[in-house]
Amino acid sequence: MKTSTNLTEPQGIIKNMRQKRTTNLFWNQQQKIAPYLFIAPFYLLFVIFMGYPLISSLVMSLYEMRGFQSRIFVGIGNFTDLFRDPIFWKSLKNTAYFAVGTLTLQLPIALLLAILLNSKFVKGKNLLRLAFFAPVLVAGVFVAIIFNLVYDQRAGLVNQEFVLFGKEIGWLNEEKYVMPAVILTGVWQWAGFNMIYFLAGLQGIRQELYEAAAVDGASWWQAFIHVTLPSLRPVIAFVFVVSMIGSLQLFDLPFILTNGGEPADAGSTIVMYLYKNGFQFMRLGYAATIGWVLFFIIAVISIVQLKLLGIFRDE
């Protein structure tokens, strides 16, 4: 019987060559495989924690749960039910109200704050930046609890002012005041956060542009309209889209502030209605349907916004 020690010289060379070729082959393969292995964790996690739940929820939207153990296929039944559901439409209206309120109130305030903090004339900029940004560090639940006291009908800070005019406003008790109260709370919490984006955008604008505008005799307002705003377009688009998506996903703030959307669903939002259906009513299929409808709403609005803001334009 031959062993490796008994190999003749040519045989040994052949074996060494083969070993070398195998090593090279392994190395070549490893070089090819390595990049995929490096990115594999992300895709693996994405498939497990995003891909699978997404597909699963899409499938679930075509079913309805029957208790904990079984489900029944209902096709597009959940979708047709949803479009006939008055509470869904009310929640959608409230959510849209919040989104519009946020975009029209919060973003101009954020831009104004950024411009003020970017000017040479304001003192204590670092302190002010921290002060305006600080609310975002507070969890939504705590913000809601704090503002519950702020809007307190009798002793709240807001009514302490308004009561002077003879009206004790039930901010969280009267339907018409509920969403304005939620919007104002949202402004308090997020204006400082968006201010940071605008500030970064403002600081990125080349000074030469302003100098050129000044040489051309442009006023401050003209420089703002023709230099600042166009230069900020990508930032404005980003903040617009992110704020809109965040607004459409609104949940914790009104949920705590209005004790689950009361009175009369005046504080109900789409995600709150999704939560109620999924967790309180055990209608998981219907909740999944709400989730997908919300996804399409967000996708369409985001694409329209980006198009209108010219983000898809080649420049």
């Binding site: 006291l149 009798r154 002793a155 709240g156 039930g170 009361e262």
Partner: peptide, 16 residues
């Protein structure tokens, strides 16, 4: 009178 705040255990109700 309607409950002050969001429920009977609301600080606003206690204040009233």
């Amino acid at each position: 009178t309607p409950v002050y705040g969001t429920w009977h255990g609301d600080p606003s109700n206690f204040a009233a």
